[in-house]
């Protein structure tokens, strides 16, 4: 469970987060939906303690990130934007490295790496260096890194960017699978389709603020629109920065 309360953060002249509060429950997929520049990435970075909020707190499983960053991060897996691959390592080495950094012992990390490689069907590339990988291969490697240590909470920053249909489907299946296992999945996006297809709960963000929270159906009902896209535009009051 990820709980964010009254987060505010000013970066330079921009009020990136403005009294932001929401809860992402276990066993649910929560989508953070907002136009470009709404503060989605800032919000996720704050949850990881990379950015310090001016006010407010972020809690993972009840652990305040600001007070016990190590304990809180132990419960997290991150699929970042950009991926941050090491081009000279193979996916197997890369995944195992981050598994060990997440606290797994050397032997456990090795085993978990083999499992996640099989799960994501990475065998054909698992021992090739990451340099020259396609976007889909990079996504899979980064995703494997995020879930290798079976964290109870998984955060994905714009996971479907630049993916083809096959890769997007694979990603969806994995996320649904994680949800069914009782994990808390939180991802940010500005793509309507994937949010509508996946999310149990949608948090609509604009200018660092929560505009609306609810299931896609609830949001449609609330605005009286037939599609999530129309509901979204109604909610944020502009169609700027939206990808259909």
């Amino acid at each position: 469970m990820i709980k964010v309360s009254h987060l505010s953060k000013r970066i330079g002249e921009v009020q990136a987060l403005n009294d932001l509060s929401f809860v992402a429950e276990n066993g649910q997929i929560t989508g953070l939906l907002g136009p470009n520049g709404a503060g989605k990435t800032t919000c996720l970075r704050t949850i990881f303690g990379l950015l310090k909020p001016d006010t407010g707190t972020a809690e993972i499983e009840g652990i305040d990130v600001a007070i016990d960053p190590i304990g809180a991060k132990q419960q997290l897996g991150l699929f970042p934007d950009p991926f941050g691959l090491y081009e000279r390592l193979t996916p197997r080495e890369y995944i195992r490295y981050f598994a060990e950094l997440s606290g797994l012992s050397a032997s456990d990390a090795k085993e978990a790496t083999s499992k996640v490689i099989a799960k994501l069907r990475l065998e054909d590339i698992s021992d090739r260096r990451c340099k020259g990988f396609s976007q889909g291969q990079r996504m899979k490697t980064a995703l494997a890194q995020a879930i290798v240590h079976s964290p109870s909470n998984i955060i994905l920053d714009e996971p479907t960017r630049g993916l083809d249909v096959m890769s997007t489907r694979l990603l969806r299946d994995i996320l649904i699978d994680l949800k069914n296992q009782g994990h808390c999945v939180l991802f940010s996006s500005h793509v309507m389709q994937e949010v509508a297809a996946l999310c149990d709960q949608v948090i609509v963000m604009a200018q660092g603020r929560v505009v609306a929270i609810g299931s896609p159906e609830q949001l449609c009902a609330q605005t009286g629109k037939a599609s999530l896209e129309d509901a979204f535009i109604q909610l944020i009051g502009t169609d700027e920065g939206i990808a259909a």
């Binding site: 691959l85 950094l101 997440s102």
Partner: peptide, 9 residues
């Protein structure tokens, strides 16, 4: 990769 690294415990 630095931010990713620092996102780990």
């Amino acid at each position: 990769s630095l931010a990713l690294l620092l996102s780990h415990p």
